[in-house]
Amino acid sequence: MKDSKTVLLIVDRLDKGGLAHVLLTLACGLLARGHRVGLALLENSVAYPLPEAAWLRINEAERPSRRWRHAAFRREVTGFARQAISDFETEHGKADLIIAAGELAIRCVPPIHHPRIVFSSHSSQLQAAKMSGLIGQLRLGFKRLRRGWRLQRLLNGRHVHVVSDGLAKELTGSLKVRPASVHVIYNPFDIDAIREAARQSTPESLKRLRPFVIGIGLLTKNKHFSRLLEAFAASGVDGDLVLVGQGGDEEALWQLARAKGLDGRFEIVPFHHNHYALLAKASLLVVTSDSEGLSNVLCESLIVGVPALSTDCPHGPRDILGGIDERALVPLDRIDLLPERIHSLLDKPYDITDAMVERFSVDKVIDQYLALIDMLDE
């Protein structure tokens, strides 16, 4: 392989969320190592500064609100992606690697049969059953058949990347997709930059004068922060509970906090520029989701030296916390264990070693992405 590679990242959008952070970290890491990088955004939604050295194209077409227009919109996105690849290669030469990341990319880029494309999935296609009992399982089974058929049509015979072993098993097992190859590569984290940010003081971190447990993420049903709130109240521990995020469940969570007698001990802090400073002051991070692709916040928690506790949900938490401490994962059918686990991990937190976090370092992850080029050359 020549030293400098040409990499194009085709991504749905770069707004709030884990995928945007992952792709920008990857882009900046590749640029820092002297590679040529392009970004092609399938939707015009950007919430982060973009690297100035990266080649850039943004699709200006708006996603339609009417469902009957979605098929036409996806065709427009396919055309944009095809033109972006052509323009990028005209300026920088043939691409060594093209990563198509995100749900829209996975639906719209497969008609483009470029030999260097790897499709990148960062989230579960099935998640957990949304209803309990037989009806919930029947609906999940129907979803498995429908999603499986669609993904088989899109990804059979193509090269695929996923961010956890659990997602790989879901794709090839439950969904019966038969890719040409499947590669598990964790999300990249700039460990030194995160730790430096964690050492800073922010208005949000300076307010925390008492010990606290923290949860970070969108305040939506899938994240189930109500579980964390109920478990914290039942644990009997001292200190506060702080949630970092925003979303449609915010008012319901405030009402639940009042009902559980947590007045003065519960706070919701909106997403802000540097949540690492606040996370680093916490005694414990807790994730209570029904589904995670990998869970960036679990990785970030270990990086800044804060023990993490999570539901053992599909699919990423086990990749991160499995084998660290038996108390760190709670089965979804044993949510009743959460209060005791919170109490236990606050009383006797587990040790966090360098080996636990180095596997997520940006350099290690970039090496794995670049290794895909050798695979495509074979």
Rank of each mutant, 00 (worst) to 15 (best):
N187A: 11
P188G: 05
D190G: 05
D192R: 14
A193L: 07
I194L: 12
I194Y: 03
R195P: 04
R199V: 00
Q200A: 15
T202Y: 13
E204N: 11
S205W: 10
K207Y: 01
R208L: 13
L209Q: 15
F212N: 05
F212R: 02
I214W: 09
G215T: 05
L218V: 03
L218C: 05
L219Q: 00
T220L: 06
K221S: 11
K223I: 08
L229D: 03
E230T: 15
A231N: 06
S235L: 11
G236C: 05
G239K: 04
L241W: 01
L241M: 07
L241H: 03
L243Y: 11
Q246F: 06
G247R: 07
G247E: 12
G248R: 12
D249F: 00
E251K: 14
E251A: 15
A252K: 13
A252E: 14
W254R: 12
Q255A: 10
A257F: 01
A259D: 14
A259N: 10
K260C: 13
D263R: 13
D263L: 08
D263E: 15
E267H: 09
V269S: 00
P270S: 11
H273I: 02
N274L: 10
N274K: 07
Y276Q: 13
A277W: 01
A280R: 15
A280G: 10
A282M: 07
L284E: 02
V286A: 08
D290V: 02
E292C: 12
G293P: 11
L294G: 08
S295K: 04
N296I: 04
N296R: 10
C299D: 02
S301G: 15
L302F: 09
I303E: 08
V304M: 04
G316S: 13
